[in-house]
Amino acid sequence: MSIPETPVPVPAAVRLLADGEDVHAVRVNQLGGVTFRLRGTGGRVRFCKWAPAGAALPLAEEVQRLAWAAPFTPVPRVLGSGADADGSWLLTEGLPGESAVARRWLAAPAVAVPALARGLRALHERLPVRECPFDWSVPHRLARAVGDVSRLGPAPPVERAVVCHGDACAPNTLLGEDGAAVAHVDLGGLGVADRWADLAVATMSLGWNYGPGWEGVFLDAYGVAPDARRTAYYRALWDAGP
């Protein structure tokens, strides 16, 4: 995900949902998906995720995951979802806080990075593994991979099964005014897996957003020792997608 550098056309369905409110694209991804912020009078803020027709962005699956996770941990409340010939959409209520890659937090990695780690640890501890109906295990992901997995080799044994976020990159954690993690977003891949499936991606994203040298800080704050084998495996699996 990245911040759009040029204006992004607003699909007709999103315009209709906005109903006259200000619409601004705040995130785009490499698959053509766009997240729009809808800002109305009185301070109301909503977000609409848009996936063009044919894009491999399972918004319907995210609706199910958000509904399941909501009783256990702060996630966006779904206001509606749908699809037309042009694409699909997911409308959610705005949450307190701002992305961990907002300008203020990019300038303060010593605050943001430990907060990300503690937020991920809290997510892993709050979501009940035995009650989770969603799978993000290695066999599940290998069956859906679109990249070359022939060089991955055997998966390392599961160190600890948790309900993983599924895309634990820094932008998907919201931080409050005090710098603490307050919620998670973009949970379309949520499911049970080794916690290193999340940790490997979360630590990889630190370099993209905050520069080198923060992985140890993250792992210390999460409360786990580095694991080079699992980190390498799950990063390679991530690259094979989805």
Rank of each mutant, 00 (worst) to 15 (best):
L91I: 10
L91D: 12
L91Q: 01
T92D: 03
T92S: 06
T92W: 03
T92M: 10
T92C: 13
T92F: 02
T92Q: 12
E93V: 11
L95C: 12
L95K: 05
E98M: 14
A100T: 05
R103S: 13
R103P: 04
W105V: 12
L106R: 15
A107L: 12
A107M: 07
V111D: 14
A112G: 11
A112K: 10
A112R: 14
P114L: 07
L116W: 08
A117W: 10
A117C: 11
A117G: 11
R118F: 02
R118N: 02
G119F: 10
G119W: 10
G119C: 12
G119V: 11
L120C: 08
L120T: 06
L120H: 01
R121Q: 14
R121A: 15
R121Y: 08
A122N: 04
L123M: 13
L123W: 15
L123C: 11
L123A: 13
H124Q: 08
H124R: 05
E125Q: 15
R126D: 12
R126Q: 15
R126V: 04
V129C: 00
V129H: 00
R130C: 02
E131W: 07
E131F: 07
C132V: 04
P133A: 00
F134E: 09
F134Y: 14
D135R: 10
W136F: 15
W136E: 08
S137V: 13
V138I: 13
V138Y: 05
P139A: 08
H140S: 14
L142C: 06
L142Y: 10
A143H: 11
A143F: 09
A143V: 14
R144H: 14
A145K: 01
V146N: 09
P154C: 08
P154L: 03
A155S: 13
A155Y: 01
A155H: 03
P156S: 04
P157T: 08
P157I: 09
P157V: 09
E159F: 11
R160G: 05
A161S: 10
A161T: 06
V162Q: 01
V162L: 02
C164W: 07
G166M: 05
D167H: 02
C169M: 06
C169Q: 10
P171L: 08
P171H: 07
N172D: 03
T173F: 15
L174V: 10
G176A: 05
G176S: 06
E177I: 12
G179I: 14
A181R: 03
V182K: 02
H184P: 06
V185Q: 04
D186G: 00
D186V: 02
D186I: 04
D186R: 00
L187H: 12
G188C: 13
G189L: 09
G189N: 11
L190M: 15
L190F: 07
L190K: 04
G191W: 08
V192A: 01
A193C: 05
D194N: 09
R195W: 12
R195Q: 13
A197Q: 12
L199K: 00
A200C: 00
A200Y: 00
A202S: 10
M204A: 15
S205G: 01
S205N: 03
S205Q: 07
L206R: 07
